[in-house]
Design a protein around this nucleic acid. Sequence first.
RNA 1: GUUCCCAUCGUCUAGGGGCCUAGGACACCUCCCUUUCACGGAGGAUACAGGGGUUCAAAUCCCCUUGGGAACGCCA
Length: 493
Amino acid sequence: MNSQISPHVRVRFAPSPTGYLHVGGARTALYNYLFAKKNKGEFILRIEDTDEARSTQESLQGVVDDMVWLNLLWDEGVDSKTLKDLGPLGPYRQSERLPIYKEVADKLLQTGKAYYCFMTDAELEQQREQALKEGRNPHVNSPYQHWTLPQAQEHLKAGNKGVVRFKTQELKKDYILNDLVRGEVKFPSDMVGDFVLLRSDGMPVYNFCCAVDDHMMKITHVFRAEEHLPNTLRQLMIYEGMGWQTPEFGHMALILDEDRQKLSKRKGAVACSQLRDEGYLNSAVLNFIALLGWSHPEGKEIFSIEDMINVFDISRLNHSGAIFDRVKFKWVNAMHLRALPNMELWKQIQPFLARENMELPQDPVWQEKSIEVFKSYMEVLADAIELYRPLNDKSYVILPEAEETMKWEPTKAVLTAWKELVEAYPNEYMTEDEFLKIQDEVKNKTGAKGKHLFMPIRVAVIGKPHGAELKILVPLMNKKSLVSRAALALAQL
RNA sequence: GUUCCCAUCGUCUAGGGGCCUAGGACACCUCCCUUUCACGGAGGAUACAGGGGUUCAAAUCCCCUUGGGAACGCCA
């Protein structure tokens, strides 16, 4: 491979603001970001909003917000707050670059590399069906490709609308792409038909903008998903037609859904914003999506973005698609969660607890202690809700899973003894030792032991027979709360 | 249909001719820790799609088959 790294690396991520940013897009952005950082180059965010019908301002803001949340910050593009241009080679929104595309298209028209085509949709469709029936490529074969430019301009002046197509039929040769991840890929030129550059309303089309912008924005490396591999041929043709030097391309394998199909928004691809709502950490998202198509040289499974930047190498990019596995993702998130300092984790769960209007003590010592107890039970931040709920007096209930425990013969005696002993306790919060002593007394009084002792008490404390250790849990609750819970539990017998 | 891409445990992967009776991780199973559940620790089961070559030697290189995917738009 002749991948001589240019002195100054410039890469870009170019989303179209027609929906949310999903994990596939995020991974493309991540790899580009890593490559830029690793090579001390620039990371550009370009907005591909030439589909007027589907592009929206809200979606653009959403994508930008997700990028910011992921901490994939760009050097040039649009400002994350105002969405105004940022950088010397703008505008960075394609909808604001129309005159540029027009100019390039004119050049291609004048040099005979492109032509105006006036075929109707019906004609196109008919031709397509015919070709398919005969087992040929369903490519356009426009009669207008032979028209001279003045002839077409005359037709235009008469009020006809036409598209500008790139002329491919005379290019009878193979195009060779030295793909940075796949090696040599050979495309026969008839793999594509005369593709549209400018729509009849003058708006440019993806492949055209992409080539023009990558050239104008001095992009040196294009890393994108494999679905764009066939597009590369069209872009190569445009570069050749304009006499431009091509950037390096690298096509990465796709992220697949459970059916081994390309992840698509249509089929409910995972949105980054949704992951955030479910309580995934941005560092875990980055860690996990990096693993879907790349591996750490030391075989590490859990790592930070800084670590990734240090060791990132495109030679470790995979060639085959990867299924997005929610289960492993949760584990990765749990690992990141547990690596957080306690008070930082406390801070992170606040939005989730706030959603449920939970009132918890303000005491930082209590807060830190509670995190220490619940940390190993959390996989996503949202788990904190069910973990902390029992600590919230308002929501103490005996859960259905406690049913069996409540039926045990010694349960009533245990609950009664427990309630009496707690009532007799003189202070607000008991220590671990004091709890253990009380527990022992319950045991002596009732003769209950083992699960017949612990589970009823746990039900009286958190409403269910399983959960964190009592000796850590109980010191997190004040006497008043413990007594009223015990009373409630007894009342249910 | 045509073209292109891809192929190691269920999943993500390591491996790039001998170090491979194929390593790691998630999930699963067993045990330990724990008077519960998790966490943690120790083990276990499970994979080179098939067939031909090349070679002293193939998971690794080549070819074919099969399977999967993508693209063939006035979407990106």
